[in-house]
Simulated assay, not measured.
Amino acid sequence: MHAFDTELRNRIIKLVKGLLEQNSLGADITASAKLVDAGLTSMDMVNLMLGVEAEFDFTIPQSEITPENFQSVETLERMVATQLRLANAA
């Protein structure tokens, strides 16, 4: 994992932790932890999606807004990295 990936992961974890704190949940988030198990509601998932878009400055394509992509920090990270690569290639 290179520095970019670590930074990407840390930014996503920070977003997730921020949402959990709003719900007074202090779950320790690991990369593979299921976000719903950590306590994120469907409303939180929407906020997470908006947070990711704002944090990384891109719009998540409708086709990528899937339960699979929002399962864990790892799955989110993969989706974000792919979108950033596509944006940089354009």
Results as ranks from 00 to 15, higher is better:
residue 14 K to T: 15
residue 20 L to E: 07
residue 40 L to A: 00
residue 25 L to W: 03
residue 36 V to C: 11
residue 60 I to M: 05
residue 75 T to K: 11
residue 7 E to N: 13
residue 34 K to V: 09
residue 47 N to K: 10
residue 4 F to Q: 11
residue 87 A to P: 00
residue 80 V to R: 08
residue 33 A to V: 09
residue 49 M to Q: 13
residue 76 L to K: 05
residue 51 G to C: 01
residue 76 L to V: 15
residue 49 M to C: 06
residue 87 A to L: 11
residue 76 L to T: 13
residue 39 G to K: 08
residue 45 M to W: 07
residue 46 V to H: 02
residue 69 N to L: 06
residue 57 D to E: 13
residue 40 L to N: 01
residue 77 E to N: 12
residue 84 L to H: 04
residue 81 A to G: 04
residue 74 E to S: 15
residue 73 V to R: 03
residue 60 I to S: 02
residue 59 T to Y: 05
residue 56 F to C: 04
residue 19 L to C: 02
residue 83 Q to W: 15
residue 38 A to R: 02
residue 65 I to L: 11
residue 30 T to P: 05
residue 43 M to A: 14
residue 48 L to E: 02
residue 51 G to K: 04
residue 14 K to F: 14
residue 69 N to S: 10
residue 77 E to C: 11
residue 9 R to S: 12
residue 32 S to R: 10
residue 58 F to N: 04
residue 14 K to Y: 07
residue 23 N to R: 12
residue 90 A to W: 09
residue 36 V to A: 12
residue 14 K to H: 11
residue 5 D to S: 13
residue 13 I to L: 11
residue 55 E to I: 02
residue 59 T to L: 14
residue 41 T to A: 02
residue 74 E to H: 15
residue 46 V to C: 04
residue 59 T to H: 07
residue 76 L to Q: 15
residue 74 E to A: 08
residue 61 P to W: 10
residue 14 K to D: 08
residue 46 V to G: 03
residue 72 S to M: 13
residue 40 L to G: 00
residue 25 L to H: 06
residue 54 A to P: 00
residue 27 A to G: 15
residue 44 D to K: 04
residue 9 R to Q: 15
residue 76 L to E: 08
residue 62 Q to F: 06
residue 75 T to I: 07
residue 59 T to N: 13
residue 78 R to H: 07
residue 18 G to S: 10
residue 54 A to K: 12
residue 69 N to T: 15
residue 24 S to M: 07
residue 69 N to K: 09
residue 16 V to F: 01
residue 85 R to D: 05
residue 6 T to V: 15
residue 23 N to E: 14
residue 37 D to P: 11
residue 74 E to C: 05
residue 53 E to N: 04
residue 7 E to L: 09
residue 21 E to R: 12
residue 18 G to P: 01
residue 51 G to W: 03
residue 4 F to L: 06
residue 6 T to S: 08
residue 64 E to S: 09
residue 72 S to W: 15
residue 31 A to H: 11
residue 18 G to K: 09
residue 69 N to I: 07
residue 18 G to M: 02
residue 35 L to A: 08
residue 80 V to I: 13
residue 62 Q to Y: 06
residue 5 D to C: 03
residue 8 L to M: 13
residue 47 N to Q: 08
residue 20 L to G: 06
residue 30 T to G: 15
residue 68 E to I: 05
residue 71 Q to R: 05
residue 52 V to H: 01
residue 76 L to C: 14
residue 79 M to A: 01
residue 19 L to N: 01
residue 58 F to G: 03
residue 80 V to Y: 07
residue 11 R to W: 00
residue 43 M to P: 03
residue 49 M to H: 14
residue 24 S to G: 02
residue 75 T to M: 08
residue 55 E to W: 02
residue 11 R to Y: 03
residue 39 G to W: 05
residue 49 M to G: 07
residue 83 Q to M: 06
